[in-house]
Design a protein around this nucleic acid. Structure first.
Lengths: 344, 344
DNA sequence: TATATTTATGCAAATGTTTGCATAAATATA
DNA sequence: TATATTTATGCAAACATTTGCATAAATATA
């Protein structure tokens, strides 16, 4: 009765109780084919009876594999990231993986630090949204060398050839702009995000391309770049747009905060929304249903994006042919959500 | 040159290179006192030179300790939880711990499943916000038995004596209500959450107590219970309140969504806010700064709550006197944020 | 100087699981 | 029936680190 005390039940205890070897028990547990049905049942029953469960640390130690996926994002408490992570976790959990989360705070040094830690700690894989200050990717390239699967989400990483899951920002923004054009808008402005960030650049391009393809001119003064797409910056930009001498009748915003700000400003300037100006946001934040009028916007499918990233990663972890594949880029479809801030 | 290939550098490699024993290297790495300054330096230099880092799995395997904190919450993509987790992660990371996150989806069975997994996987500790369906706590009591530190956050757990970090909901709601009374409101309604959930019960009690202490009557028909405190439920409740024959001049809402809904409804009924009715929310969600007028509310300090929970847990993990303490309950202070939806 | 104490280091075992190799038993083939 | 093949199981080593115990070296005490 070596284990009558609080110490954990091991494979050996099961083996001893059944007069079989530890190997046999281990093989049953991992569904090894070369085990007879009879012993398989015997072992499984005993395992249940004794309430045994495998020690994951010991298992990882021996096999050099873990069931733990590292996730690095700038911050967890940003609506978009929390949704992506929710999707990552759901899929991972249902497939037997755990996720360990880190916040880089958009700090390049910290991001490198976390990445290198993850690399030496036998993470099964890494899902990362690189920080805004991250422009070199050596810390990520190391994962390829170490043969640890890697998936980047949301931000494009020029020069790093790796698995990516992204929103088709260009297409989404194009779609949003086209929606305004089709409903009759002729003079459409844009409140854009930091143009050194690829996704915001893509949103501006989508907007521009939609104008061009529909024969509308691009007017530089109707494009207002902001640093953080904050509500406050939105107020400022919208004010400037409301004060141009010729009226605008449409506004494509690169997120919902600036769009909400624009609604407030144009209402103050006595524009009827959507009759005199159509305003559309991006992301489908909770606020979009609360502002008055309710905001038309683009749903970025963040949760789904997380699921896809998780799936892609786990596929690569488990697929032994992994080395044959090089990498994949997946674009997530967005959805145009038409509410009351744009004409039908 | 055994390790010229891709295999990892071990303590033995360092030992061999310096002609010392592995024990010595290990002791340097864990700051064991019985090591001379000279060898300490020698080893540390070699460690840097060879780019060695300890294998955390092997270390955990031998020492039966991990640096991994389990976190279970209903969902990650809820503003409150994502902020708490952000705080947990920040503090944990700065103290050498990692967090592994799970979503219970408010599903009792899943919560139990995750908890039991965490218990057998050598988690250093657990931080949990129990789900709405969780009314028995055997799965958490096991942690105490297994001597794994446990901290519950946000939801009270009657009958479970354990470490808790909570908002003082009673006091916060009291404070909010008193703010309205002091600014001259005489007839104050309340939109409340599910009364089987302790925190929402406490918010109702805080509201009631403030009325009583200020000599105002409690009118049952001015208290509207909702199931989920959703924006839609807020619209319905506010409509009912706007249709009582005697006008109300104040409204305390148990969250910001219902408060935002109330603003919309009372504006529609041509009330001037805050002159004719003061409306206050709870939680300080992003929307509170965006609705018009900007919403007065209670900041629940979610990020700080996470930090405190993390700190409490790590204290208990590392404090060898842990068994001496029984448990602690910490109440986080809330902050009254006065914006434009309430009279000054 | 002899003995006691302190300080610094090494030895070797132990942790729980997995897995290559060996082998026994059972079955198929000639 | 003898041999070859397949199937099921066991043996024992390996993984990287930690730690109790032993001991050598250095220092303090008598």
């Amino acid at each position: 009765m070596k284990n009558s005390d609080s110490s954990r039940i091991t494979i050996k205890d099961i083996a001893k109780a059944l007069n079989v070897s530890a190997s046999t028990v281990s093989r049953v547990l991992s569904n090894h084919p070369a085990i007879s049905e009879s012993t398989r049942k015997l072992v499984n029953d005993k395992v249940k009876e004794m309430g045994f469960s495998i020690d994951p640390i010991a298992s990882s130690f021996r096999s050099k594999k873990t069931k733990s996926i590292g996730v690095i994002c700038p911050r967890i408490d940003i609506d978009f990231h929390s949704k992506v992570i929710s999707g990552i976790e759901d899929y991972a959990y249902n497939n037997g993986y755990q996720i360990t989360i880190f916040q880089s705070q958009d700090n390049y040094k910290k991001e490198k630090e976390i990445a290198s830690m993850l690399e030496t700690s036998l993470a099964a894989g890494l899902i990362i949204c690189p920080g805004l200050q991250t422009h070199k990717y050596d810390h990520l390239k190391k994962f390829k060398k170490a043969n640890i699967p890697l998936v980047v989400y949301d931000r494009s990483t020029d020069g790093l050839k790796t698995n990516k899951v992204m929103i088709n920002d260009f297409e989404a923004s194009f779609k949003a702009t086209e929606h305004l054009i089709k409903s009759g808008c002729k003079r459409i402005g844009h409140i854009s995000g930091d143009q050194s960030v690829s996704i915001f650049k893509a949103r501006l391009q989508g907007y521009s391309e939609a104008l061009i393809q529909n024969g509308l001119p691009i007017e530089e003064k109707l494009i207002k770049e902001t640093k953080n797409l904050s509500y406050e910056e939105g107020l400022i930009s919208a004010n400037e747009l409301a004060n141009t001498n010729e009226r605008i009748d449409g506004l494509v915003c690169a997120n919902d905060y600036t769009a909400a700000a624009a609604i407030k400003v144009f209402k103050k300037f006595n524009y009827n929304i959507p009759e005199e100006i159509s305003i559309i946001g991006f992301s489908n934040y909770p606020i979009s249903k609360i502002v008055d009028p309710q905001l038309s916007t683009i749903d970025d499918n963040a949760y789904h994006m997380g699921k896809v990233a998780s799936k892609l990663l786990i596929q690569q972890i488990e697929d032994s042919d992994f080395e044959r594949l090089d990498y994949q880029e997946i674009l997530i479809k967005t959805e145009l959500i038409i509410r009351d801030s744009t004409k039908k």
